[in-house]
């Protein structure tokens, strides 16, 4: 346990140092590209052979209100993780929003099945420990494609572990915990994939190189999520207007 903690702290330190050195950098290297491309191909094959058919079947046999209820339920379950990270980032207004949403949806929304808070003008937002580390100045580390889970960075991957401890279900005991956890993960994953069938198809059709396209989409959307959509205008690249032909 002590050895694990030590390794985590060492990794944390190197990420932080790396982050300080390259915080304003627009371009991210991909030193693990051969490994990442292999993982990407594996995920694409899994997606085409298993996930897409399962997602389509799920959509065909599950009525839309049930699917929406399930999604709301999972999103509500994640609220404590979002709240913890809102607080760690000092985003008090957003923390208040998350707490209000959680309270309202868990009670009036029948355990989170209905997103009544949204109807009250309280929009949902996402946060995770990877974003919290980014806010404190820790660099992203290299791009990583995780088996099954897809695009990530070293920072975001490490961030998954503290998030696990913020999730209330981690401390809930069930008679058969594995069955419950596995069912929850499979359902959540299937529901998520079923909602991106069209957009992923479109991306696959238009991408010149799917791997590069997904990698850039990941970095850009991740950067936007970290800043909560606020631009750091200085980070935008310059357009060379002077050498137009």
């Amino acid at each position: 346990m002590v050895w694990r903690l030590f390794r985590f702290l060492v990794l944390f330190f190197f990420l932080w140092v790396g982050g300080c050195a390259s915080q304003n950098s627009q371009t991210h290297g991909d030193p693990l590209e051969p490994f990442n491309r292999a993982m990407f191909d594996l995920n694409t094959n899994l997606d085409k052979t298993i996930l897409i058919p399962v997602s389509k079947t799920y959509m065909a046999i599950t009525p839309k209100p049930a699917r929406n209820g399930l999604r709301n339920f999972f999103q509500n379950l994640r609220s404590p993780v979002v709240l913890a990270n809102d607080i760690l980032q000092g985003e008090w207004a957003r923390a208040g929003n998350t707490l209000s949403r959680f309270a309202l949806n868990s009670t009036v929304g029948i355990g989170g099945l209905f997103d009544v808070a949204k109807a009250e003008g309280m929009e949902r937002h996402k946060e995770d420990f990877g974003q919290t580390m980014a806010v404190t100045g820790i660099g992203p580390g290299p791009y990583l494609v995780l088996p099954i889970l897809g695009p990530s960075s070293l920072r975001a991957t490490i961030g998954r572990f503290p998030d696990h401890f913020f999730a209330p279900l981690t401390y809930t005991r069930f008679d058969d915990k594995n069955t419950f956890t596995t069912t929850k993960r499979v359902l959540k994953f299937t529901d998520k994939r079923s909602r991106s069938l069209q957009s992923v198809n479109k991306m696959r059709e238009s991408a010149f190189d799917e791997y590069t396209s997904v990698r850039d989409l990941y970095w850009q959307t991740r950067a936007s999520a970290i800043t909560n959509g606020k631009d750091n205008l200085e980070d935008l690249p310059d357009f060379n207007v002077g050498t137009v032909q």
Binding site: F208, Q220, T221, G229, F239
Partner: peptide, 22 residues
């Protein structure tokens, strides 16, 4: 107009990532 951003993605920047990759 030289770029537009939709859902957190700047389109010209995205095109540059793809084109320079090729």
């Amino acid at each position: 107009v030289v770029d537009i951003e939709i859902s957190g993605v700047w389109i010209s920047q995205h095109q540059r990532a793809e084109i320079t990759g090729v």
